[in-house]
Amino acid sequence: MPKRSKRPRSTPRRSIKELFAQPPAQLYSRTTIYQCGNEMEIENFKTLLDYEDGLIRVDLGHGTLTVTGARLEIAALEKGRLRLRGIFIKTEFSYD
């Protein structure tokens, strides 16, 4: 029988420390993708590589995201933030 790992004891000091703990570094600068219905939002991307009818390619820094679909429209484009609208058929990630 494997030995059960010991759970660290909860002390008041540890509880307070956990309560005020900061999220891991670079959490807010990581690439995030949300999709809801026919809208997709990509945050913290690097560069818009390609934009054609039915295809959009975005550089995420550590790889590439390719979205294939129909009637794709960039509803809003801001620094590091892209909102797509259309019918999404396929999303493809490739890592360098």
């Binding site: 054609e52 009818d53 794709l72 429209e73 960039i74 509803a75 809003a76 484009l77 801001e78």
Partner: peptide, 9 residues
């Protein structure tokens, strides 16, 4: 910071 919207290919 230019606000460009409704971009259609």
């Amino acid at each position: 910071g230019l606000r460009i919207r409704a971009i259609r290919p």
